[in-house]
C-alpha cells in the first residue's frame, strides 16, 4: 500500500521532510518557513567530535530539532522513537504505515543505493520519509531527490542502523495528532527568530554560533603549521563540503533563511524584515566568496591564491557581520 503523499523536492532533508509531512496533514508551509520555524540556521565547530578524522563543522542544529520545534510552534503532537533491535524497528515502522501514517526516519547515507558513489560517506544525519510498502519494497520520499525512490527491506534496515559518528539507532518520528486548528504563524515566527538569535549569539561556550566561526578562523591560521599542507587542504575542503553539500540550499542555509525572512515580512506585517532578508543574502554571498577562494586555495588555481590568514580574515569578517545582523534582528523582533 502507498499513502497518498505529495512529494516535493527541497533543499534540506529535515526541513523538506517537515514541510512535506505537515502538508500531508493539511498545513501548508513552505520549506523556508519550516527552516525558520525550526530555527534551523546555526553554526557549530566541534573539534572534540571528529567526522572522517576531522573536526565536525555544522551549519544546522542537531538532527530532529527542526521537526520538533516546528511541531511545537504549530501545536502538533509528535512522537519519536529509537530502537536497539533492528527487526522491532522495522515492525514498528510497518505498523504505522498500515495505519496510513507517513513516517520520518533518520538514516546514514553510506548504503543508500540511489546516492552517487562519491556522496556516500559515513554521514548519519540524513532524513527521509517512508510513505508506502509493497511486499518487501518500501517507497520513500527523499526531499533532496526529484522523485520518489524505492528501498528494499534489507536496504532500509541497514541505513536506519548505520554506524559511526552519531549512529541513528533506527530513529523514527511521526505526527501523533495533528492540530485541529493550527495557530497563526505570527507567534511561532517571533519565538523562533528569537531562538535563532539566541543560539547564534548567546551560547556561553566558544564552539557555537558567531563565537564558533571566530574560533574556527583562529585555528585555521595555524593549520598549515600544525597539520601540514595536505591535511590543511583537506580540512578546508571539509568545511566547504559542509557549507554547500547537498542539503543546505547554498551558503550553509543562509539563502534559505533569507527566503524565510521575506515570507515572515508578509506574515508579521513588518516590511523591515525584507531588508533583513536582503542583508542575509549578502552574508550568504560572503560565505560563497569564502568557499570560492578556499577552493582556489586547495586547487592552487592562479598565482594570487589567499593564504590561510586571509581566509581566516574573511571568516572573522563574516562573524562580525552575522553578529551585527542578529543583534539588530533581535532588536526588531523584540519590538513586535
Amino acid at each position: 500500500m502507498t499513502i497518498n503523499f505529495e512529494h516535493k523536492p527541497a533543499a534540506h532533508c529535515e526541513s523538506g521532510v517537515t514541510s512535506n509531512l505537515l502538508r500531508f496533514y493539511g498545513v501548508n508551509i513552505s520549506e523556508p518557513m519550516a527552516l525558520g520555524l525550526g530555527a534551523g540556521l546555526f553554526f557549530s565547530y566541534m573539534p572534540f567530535i571528529t567526522l572522517h578524522g576531522m573536526p565536525t563543522v555544522s551549519f544546522r542544529p542537531l538532527p530532529g530539532q527542526i521537526f520538533a520545534r516546528v511541531a511545537k510552534r504549530l501545536h502538533f503532537k509528535i512522537r519519536t522513537r529509537h530502537f536497539l533491535n533492528e527487526d522491532k524497528a522495522m515492525g514498528a515502522l510497518d505498523k504505522l504505515l498500515l495505519r496510513g501514517t507517513p513516517v520520518g526516519v533518520v538514516v546514514g547515507v553510506f548504503y543508500l543505493p540511489y546516492f552517487p558513489k562519491e556522496y556516500r560517506f559515513h554521514f548519519n544525519a540524513h532524513n527521509l520519509c517512508v510513505i508506502g510498502k509493497e511486499e518487501d519494497i518500501y517507497t520513500v520520499s527523499d526531499p533532496i531527490s526529484l522523485d520518489i525512490n524505492r528501498l528494499s527491506y534489507d536496504e532500509l534496515k541497514r541505513v536506519r542502523f548505520a554506524k559511526g559518528t552519531f549512529p541513528p539507532l533506527g530513529k523514527m518520528y511521526w505526527v501523533k495528532r495533528a492540530a485541529t486548528s493550527p495557530p497563526s504563524l505570527k507567534a511561532g515566527i517571533i519565538r523562533s527568530v528569537k531562538l535563532c538569535c539566541k543560539q547564534m549569539l548567546d551560547i556561553p561556550v566558544p564552539y557555537f554560533g558567531v563565537k564558533g566561526i571566530v574560533l574556527m578562523a583562529k585555528k585555521m591560521r595555524r593549520w598549515e603549521k600544525t597539520l601540514g599542507r595536505r591535511k590543511a587542504a583537506l580540512h578546508l575542503a571539509q568545511i566547504i563540503r559542509m557549507l554547500e553539500e547537498i542539503g543546505t540550499g547554498g551558503a550553509g542555509f543562509r539563502y534559505m533563511y533569507a527566503a524565510f525572512l521575506q515570507e515572515a515580512a508578509a506574515v508579521l506585517g513588518k516590511p523591515e524584515c525584507k531588508d533583513f532578508a536582503a542583508q542575509m543574502v549578502k552574508i550568504g554571498d560572503r560565505w560563497r566568496d569564502f568557499a570560492h577562494e578556499a577552493a582556489r586555495k586547495f586547487k592552487k588555481r592562479g598565482d594570487d591564491v589567499c593564504s590561510y590568514d586571509q581566509l581566516a580574515d574573511k571568516l572573522v569578517a563574516i562573524a562580525n557581520e552575522e553578529k551585527r545582523f542578529f543583534t539588530s534582528l533581535r532588536k526588531l523582533i523584540r519590538k513586535i
Binding site: P9, A10, A11, P32, Y114, F115, P116, Y119, I144, S145, L146, D147, N149, E244, I246, G249, G250, Y255, M256, A258, A259
Partner: peptide, 9 residues
Amino acid sequence: DTNLRDIYY
C-alpha cells in the same frame, strides 16, 4: 546520472 539535485532559493 542521479535524480538528486541541489535546490537553491
